[in-house]
């Protein structure tokens, strides 16, 4: 009889969660203050959601991509920073790390109803790989205050790109299946 092999699911390490501590060092490095729309642009695509993200460095690029993701799901001005979620991602390159980061953040929404309005991405070393520790601040969905807007099915590999366009300027494109 056919024996299916084990599938190597993407490795994500969940590090911490729970309420936001009061210590200032645990506060987000970037809080979008409801300005997520200024960090990204929606590009033309007939069926799905195609976004261009910009940042000054790879960490900021990832943070802005996270804001863009949650900005499509909910009006970020309605999200309070009362809970924190942290996870780490390691991939072969920045582009895959971007997709993996967004996929993990989307899973937090899909599985726990977690909405983030602030993010901090910390770079971790690693030879030949890109490792990041992502901390998100926000709260769980409260239907009385949060109007959910777009159902994002997945972060696709299609037209997935990260590039440095000039010193101090990074750009990514991402296609969400909606």
């Amino acid at each position: 009889m056919y024996q299916a092999p084990a599938v190597p699911w993407p490795q994500t390490k969940r590090i911490a969660g729970g309420a936001v501590p009061s210590s200032s060092q645990d506060r987000p490095s970037r809080w979008c203050h409801g300005r997520a729309a200024s960090f990204y642009t929606e590009l033309e695509h007939p069926a799905d959601l195609f976004l261009e993200i910009k940042g000054r460095d790879p960490a900021e690029l990832l943070e802005h991509a996270l804001f863009a993701l949650f900005d499509q799901i909910v009006d970020l001005r309605t999200v309070r920073l009362v809970r924190r979620r942290t996870f780490s991602v390691r991939e072969a390159d920045l582009t895959l790390a971007l997709r993996h980061t967004l996929t993990e953040a989307l899973a937090l929404f899909n599985l726990e109803g977690f909405l983030a309005a602030a993010a901090g991405v910390r770079w971790e070393g690693g030879e030949g790989t890109v490792g990041v520790v992502v901390t998100l601040w926000g709260e769980n969905v409260d239907r009385s205050r949060h109007e959910l807007q777009t159902e994002i099915k997945a972060v696709t590999y299609h037209r997935l790109l990260t590039e440095q366009t000039e010193p101090g300027a990074w750009r990514a494109t991402i296609l969400f299946d909606v």
Partner: peptide, 26 residues
């Protein structure tokens, strides 16, 4: 959605292992 996403990763590695050239990662 989750099953598709899980297996795109698996198939990306498989395509490389089986020497299949892809015009698009998707």
């Amino acid at each position: 959605y989750q099953i598709c996403d899980d297996y795109l990763g698996v198939m990306g590695r498989a395509a490389a292992a089986y020497g299949i050239r892809l015009a698009d990662r998707q």
